[in-house]
Design a protein around this nucleic acid. Structure first.
Lengths: 119, 119
DNA sequence: CGGTATCCTCGACGATACTG
DNA sequence: CAGTATCGTCGAGGATACCG
């Protein structure tokens, strides 16, 4: 089940040694409606599932869980479950995930600079 | 016709003054299967439509034209038409587009570092 | 050569209901 | 609280045909 995303590249494509291999890999990691924002929200500290959901606002539970699972599978976030009742789950960046933060910070900076003229 | 992309945010969403406004704006600009790679390909020099198509390989004409038009509308690339027969069209980065290059370079770097273990 | 127009597929995402 | 399961929508992007 290669991850073929509309806005991503499937693994076969990535394996073909294209010049833009690296870009395709990273784009694939980050393809998803909410992933940039989730990572950005995690950059300052670890967060609970419910915090993330509240911050994003519009996301459905199913989607949030899916995006978090993908980020976890790709090794950019950690998922820590506290065996309590009610359950508590904390998400945090891995060291690999931290290396994505400069990219996201640049994107925020760019958006702040050019995004004003959204009418 | 607000640009609602699966992996983007519609303009209404962007206008709501969220903390992640900037990220959403930039993500929206870059949402599309080929946009990162197109910009990366344009970073060294201007390119003809056919060069871009050949470089990308798999893209259909319709999709390529659509992505180029969106990038042009968003002000990140220039489109210069030479009134010759056969026609020639050159695409190049605008100054706004150049500011996206550091982001894309970081993405390539990240992918080169972590992308090896695609089995 | 560099498009446009039309049709179609298919997967991301949301909505809803239910659970340990 | 933090999920899982199921269903339905909708739009990005490919395929194909045609054009100035």
């Amino acid at each position: 089940m290669s991850r073929i995303c509309k806005d991503g590249f499937d693994k076969e494509c990535i394996k073909e040694q294209r010049e833009f291999f690296g870009i395709a890999y990273t784009q694939n990691l980050l393809s998803g409606r909410w992933k940039y924002v989730i990572l950005w929200f995690l950059k300052s500290k670890e967060r609970r599932y419910s915090e993330i959901k509240a911050f994003l606002g519009d996301i459905s539970q199913g989607s949030l869980t899916k995006q978090l699972r993908e980020l976890e599978t790709d090794g950019v976030i950690n998922r820590k479950v506290y065996p309590e009742v009610p359950p508590r789950v904390e998400y945090s960046l891995t060291s690999k995930g931290e290396e994505l933060i400069p990219i996201i910070d640049l994107m925020e900076e760019f958006g702040k600079k050019f995004g004003e003229q959204v009418d």
